[in-house]
Structure formats: C-alpha cells, structure tokens
C-alpha cells in the first residue's frame, strides 16, 4: 500500500523504483536487527572464547573460524560451566521465589479485579485509582520502610530461608496492582449479562467466579503470569534490599556479585548473563504474543 502511494504522488514511477523502496525498507529493518542483537551477539561470541582467543580477537569474531581451515582452538564452554556452577543455587532460589510470587499475585489480582469490576458498590473507582497509581510508584519511596517492616516482622529470624519468604511476600504485594489492572481491563470486556444470568441461575459470587469468570480468564492468566514472571525474575532492587545472606541470593543478585568477582573475565560474565536470562528468554520466545499484550495494556 505504502509503495503504491509514493507511486501516485509522482515521486517515483517505475517498478524498479518501487522495489528499491522495498529494499531500503528491509535494509533499515535489518540494520535495526543488527543494532538490537549486537549486545547479545558480542556476549555470545565472548562467552565461548578461550582466554587467549578473547585477548586476540575482536568481539565481532566468532570463536569458531572456518577459514582458511576450520579450527576450534579458540572455542570453549568453560565460561558456561563456571558461570553455571556459580549461579546454580541462585537459580533455584529464584524459581522458589518467583513461582509462588507470580501465581499468588496473579490470583489475587484476578479475585480483586472481579470483586471491583463485576460487583459494584460505591468507592470502587477510588480503590481502582489507588491500584493504578500504585503501578507507577517509584519503589525507592518504600525501600526504607520496607526494610524496617521486615525487621519488625522478622521472618528471617525464624528460618534461614525466611528472607526469601519476605521477598516473595513483597513481590506479591507490589505485583497486585498491575495484576488487578490487567485483569480489570479484561473483565470490563466480559458481558455483564453473563454474570447476571449466572446470578439468576442461583450461583453465589464465589461460584460465579469459580465456574464462569475463572474459566473465561484463562487467556488473561497467561498474559498476567508471563508479565509477572518476567518482572519478578528480573527484579534486582527488592532483592538487593531484602536479602543479606548469600545463600538466599536470587539470580540477579548473584549475577551482580559474579560480575564483581570476575571483573576481567568477560566470558564468564556473558555466560552468566545468558544463564540468568534464559528462563525469561524462553518464556518470551514461547509466549511472545502474551508478553506483548501484557506490556501494552
């Protein structure tokens, strides 16, 4: 369509001009692809290089050289093994924290959105405004009290994993606003007559949620769970403030520590970054559509 328009405008006229236009378009698109992938590319090549290859070759060059003859001298997976063993425990910590935090904040968000959208009473709009504003609040404004709060409600003194529980609860609390807003925007599109029909059918609010709303929310659960998983997995700030015991470190924190301890070994750093990012990258590649939806709502 666009090419036809330029054709009509008289700027260009021939078929070859049109395809030239198209070539320029794809050229620009590919240039951006290069730009967007370059940090990952340089990380990937570096993570597979031996120390020698690292010092001798540019990050542009892959570790495997095919010309003049293929040789593998510069190639190694050692950085990955090193980073992997360094990060393994923190990956487990991350999963142990992220999964309950994600599921519970999504579930609470769904329940809250249902209670605030499909059952009406005064003051709803006010509460929803509070939830919406909470989505945007800079977390710095709560860090000091948060640390105070968890030193008073001291779960970490009860158990050596207590800090992780504190972090999980914190993520649930701060995840609720966005989850509620996401679910609310979905529930608003749900036919009100459906709920009314269920009420006439004799179902209680809880039954309506369980039998009608919940099954119909499954697509939105996918969006919300993916959004929250990415957010919580990627979080650094709350972990930094709440976790003090190295054994409880989540992967973002441990990766930062790894960077500090291996300041010159870029190969291990890059491999570590990829390992830490792997779960979110996999989720992103498998559920790109839902990920994008969560971002735009």
């Amino acid at each position: 369509m666009a090419t036809e328009t330029s054709d009509e405008s008289g700027l260009t006229g021939t078929v070859s001009d049109l395809s030239l236009n198209r070539v320029a378009l794809y050229g620009a698109l590919l240039a951006f692809v290069g730009l967007y992938l370059s940090p990952l590319y340089s990380g990937l090549t570096t993570s597979f290089k031996t120390q020698q290859a690292f010092t001798q070759t540019s990050p542009l060059q892959p570790p495997i050289e095919l010309l003049p003859v293929p040789h593998l001298e510069g190639f190694t997976i050692d950085p990955w093994l090193t980073a992997g063993s360094e990060l393994a425990f923190s990956m487990i910590n991350s999963f142990a924290m992220v999964i309950p935090a994600t599921v519970l904040s999504a579930l609470l968000g769904s329940l809250t959105a249902y209670g605030l959208t499909k059952v009406d009473w005064r003051g709803q709009a006010f509460l929803l405004a509070l939830f919406l504003a909470a989505v945007f609040i800079p977390y710095q404004a709560v860090l000091v009290p948060l640390r105070q709060f968890w030193s008073i409600v001291d779960i970490s003194s009860l158990h050596e994993r207590g800090e992780l529980v504190e972090l999980t609860i914190t993520h649930i609390a701060y995840g609720i606003p966005i989850c509620t807003i996401l679910f609310r925007s979905y529930y608003q599109t749900l036919d009100d007559e459906l709920i009314e029909a269920a009420r006439l059918d004799g179902a209680s609010l809880a039954r309506i949620y369980r039998k009608i709303v919940l099954p119909l929310s499954l697509p939105m659960f996918a969006v919300t769970l993916i959004y929250q998983f990415t957010q919580v997995w990627n979080d650094f700030l709350f972990a930094l403030v709440l976790l003090s015991n190295r054994a409880n470190y989540v992967v973002t924190l441990e990766l930062n520590a790894l960077q500090g301890s291996m300041a010159t070994d870029y190969g291990v750093q890059m491999a570590g970054a990829f390992i830490a990012a792997l779960p979110t990258i996999l989720v992103y590649i498998m559920f790109g559509e839902q990920f994008a939806k969560g971002q735009t709502l």
Binding site: F32, V33, N234, A273, A276
Partner: peptide, 22 residues
C-alpha cells in the same frame, strides 16, 4: 522483526547492564 526489537524488554537490567558494560 517484532520479536527481535522487543526482546530486550524481556531481559533483566542486571543482564543488559552486563552486556552493555562489555
């Protein structure tokens, strides 16, 4: 194309900071 352009949004700042430091 869309997937590639949006990919950085799926990454933690810790990860991207390490990539960009390099």
């Amino acid at each position: 194309f869309r997937t590639i352009y949006l990919l950085p949004m799926a990454l933690s700042f810790v990860v991207t900071a390490i990539f960009w430091s390099w």
